[in-house]
C-alpha cells in the first residue's frame, strides 16, 4: 500500500512522471490489453483503445485521489473507453449494440488474430448474446480471474450483484453451448 502511494506520488510529480509512467505502461499493458480485447474482440480496435486508455490515464493521473486502488482506477478507464468505443462504432454503422456484437463475432471467423477452435468461437457467440453487464462480469471473472472485491471497485457494483450476474451468465452460456 505504501509502495503504491509512493508510485502514485512519482506519477504525479513532474520530475519523476515520465519514468514512473513508463513503468506503469510496462506493468499493466498486457492485463489492460486483454481486458479491452475481450470487450472489443478485434485486435486493431483493442490496440487503439489501449493506447487511448493510457493517454487518458496520463492526462488524468493528477486527478487520481487514491480512493480506490490504482489498478481498479485504470481498469475502470479501460472499461469505459472500450464501451464508449463500441457505442461509437455502432452509431457510425447505424446499427444497434446487439447487431454490432453479432457482427464482431462473425468477423472472428476471418480474423487472423483469432485462432480459436469451434468451441471458442461458439463461446464468443454465446458471450455476445449476454447483456452488457453480464458480459463484462463473466469475462473479468472467468478469463481474467479477478476477485469480486476488485470487480466491485471497477464496476461500482456490489459483490452480491456481481456474484448473481456471474452465475446467471454461466448458466446462460452452458445452456447455449449444450442446447444442440
Amino acid at each position: 500500500m505504501v509502495e503504491e502511494q509512493l508510485f502514485i506520488a512519482a506519477l504525479q510529480n513532474k520530475e519523476t512522471q515520465n519514468r514512473a509512467f513508463q513503468q506503469l505502461v510496462s506493468q499493466y499493458k498486457e492485463r489492460l490489453y486483454w481486458h479491452i480485447r475481450r470487450i472489443v474482440l478485434n485486435h486493431d480496435d483493442a490496440d487503439d483503445v489501449l493506447q487511448n486508455t493510457f493517454v487518458k490515464i496520463y492526462r488524468n493521473i493528477h486527478n487520481f485521489k487514491g480512493e480506490s486502488a490504482l489498478f481498479s482506477w485504470m481498469y475502470r478507464i479501460a472499461t469505459n473507453e472500450s464501451l464508449t468505443f463500441l457505442k461509437q462504432k455502432a452509431k457510425m454503422a447505424n446499427i444497434t449494440d446487439e447487431e454490432l456484437q453479432n457482427s464482431l463475432v462473425q468477423n472472428l471467423q476471418a480474423d487472423s488474430y483469432f485462432e480459436g477452435e469451434e468451441i471458442q468461437l461458439k463461446l464468443q457467440q454465446a458471450i455476445a448474446k449476454l447483456p452488457e453487464k453480464q458480459r463484462l462480469v463473466f469475462n473479468m471473472k472467468y478469463f481474467e480471474e479477478l476477485k469480486y472485491e476488485e470487480m466491485s471497485q471497477i464496476l461500482d457494483t456490489s459483490v452480491g450483484a456481481l456474484k448473481s450476474s456471474y452465475h446467471h451468465a454461466v448458466k446462460k452460456l452452458e445452456d447455449y453451448l449444450t442446447e444442440d
Partner: peptide
C-alpha cells in the same frame, strides 16, 4: 462445458511495440 482459452492472439512483438 466452457473452454478456458478465449482463442485470441496478438501479432508478434506487439507488447514491445505498443509500449
Amino acid at each position: 462445458e466452457l473452454p478456458k482459452s478465449s482463442g485470441f492472439k496478438v501479432p508478434d512483438a506487439y507488447f514491445e511495440d505498443v509500449e
